[in-house]
């Protein structure tokens, strides 16, 4: 690991100024991804600004019913929070499907969002990788690519974003509140992460020095049902091969609203807009679920080892839609 300076931030603007002024500086949250990447030689910051003592450890319901989650709330605390369990089950389930108990106790809300989109080659500095070293080539294209993207990839990068939490936030239409040296801005979480295009080294639209301070969830809809389903190679503690987060409103057998996000299939949490369009206003039937899934997956492209993800995504999405639209469900 390269030597670095460490500072514990005690005010937000100071932390932002410090990182903004130093191109080698970066924020430290729970460290579960960053410290690992520093050990691997993938990340080599010259300065760490620890933001875990800043006053963002809150989950609060705002007067208009929205819920604001501070950036330093640990993943375990957020999953256990009563308002999240009661009103946003898809988010609690996604958090609980991620990592292990020990990691969830360290990992923060903001850090989970800005963990790197990655693959095994990205984490191995002895191999070419356009994300780690722009222009060096992509080892996964012709290599081992079982875990890689089927949607929105480019010839430069086929890695996937591994967060479960972010997939649920995408289906919930959450907003990310960001502060930088020019003040505050709000970004829909679906626009926070980027597709690789020809700049795979950039995972998000954040500028250097911008800090996520909170995530806002829209007021919960009483008539909506939501869930998160994750398919993986082990029963626990593994990244998703495919995951589905969905928020559905069904009235007398007709889909009024559908908000669906897919994980494990793209460089970012993938909002399934084509499937949503197919579903809205149509009867909640198996045939329509399948048609919606097929519409989304029309644009899917597989590599040597990951073609299985296309039918797996279709089947998982149909299973989730079936579960959320079952009449007898309490």
């Amino acid at each position: 690991m390269k030597p670095f300076d460490y500072e514990r931030a005690d005010d937000t603007d100071g932390a932002i100024a410090t990182v903004s002024d130093d191109p080698t500086a970066t924020y430290l949250g729970g460290g579960t991804n960053l410290v690992d990447h520093m050990k691997l030689g993938v990340a080599e910051p010259g300065k760490l600004v620890d933001i875990t003592k800043l006053p963002y450890d809150f989950v609060e319901t705002l007067p208009d019913g929205r819920v604001s989650v501070g950036a330093t709330v640990r993943n375990s605390e957020l999953a256990a929070s009563h308002v999240i369990r009661q009103s946003y089950p898809v988010l609690a389930q996604a958090l609980l499907a991620g990592a292990s108990g020990q990691l969830r106790n360290l990992a923060t809300t903001g850090g989970n969002l800005v963990q790197r989109t990655r693959c095994a080659y990205f984490q191995d500095p002895s191999t070419p990788c356009n994300k780690r070293e722009p222009g060096s080539g992509c080892s996964a294209l012709e290599g081992w690519n079982r875990h890689h993207a089927i949607l929105g990839a480019s010839e430069h990068c086929v890695a996937t974003h591994p967060s479960d939490m972010a997939v649920a936030l995408a289906a919930l239409d959450a907003t990310v509140v960001v502060r930088g040296s020019n003040g505050q801005r709000r970004i829909p979480v679906t626009e926070l992460h980027r597709l690789p295009g020809d700049e795979p080294e950039r995972d998000t639209v954040l500028e250097h020095g911008e800090l996520i301070t909170s995530v806002e969830l829209p007021a919960p809809s009483v008539s909506a049902r939501s869930t998160y389903r994750k398919v993986r190679e082990r029963a626990s503690y593994a990244f998703a091969l495919v995951s589905v987060a969905a928020v559905m409103e069904v009235d007398e057998g007709t889909v009024r609203d559908a908000r669906i996000a897919l994980g494990g299939v793209a460089h970012k949490p993938w909002r399934a807009e084509a499937a949503e369009r197919e579903l809205r206003g149509t009867p909640a039937t198996e045939e329509n679920f399948r048609r919606a899934a097929e519409a989304e997956l029309e644009q899917a492209e597989s590599l040597r080892d990951n073609a299985f993800k296309i039918p797996m995504t279709r089947n998982t999405l149909c299973a989730v839609l079936r579960e959320l639209t079952r009449e007898d469900r309490a």
Binding site: Y6, R8, L28, G30, G31, T32, V35, D36, K39, L48, D50, T52, S76, S100, G101, Q102, L103, N105, L106
Partner: peptide, 29 residues
């Protein structure tokens, strides 16, 4: 493993279980 994957380094940090290999000592002052 030294990468937070095996749990052998688990300790209780302010009462919570964590992997001590993935947190910097300086951050736990």
């Amino acid at each position: 493993c030294d990468h937070g994957q095996c749990g052998a380094c688990t300790v209780l940090l302010d009462g919570r279980r964590v992997t001590s290999c993935l947190t910097l000592a300086v951050a736990q002052d």
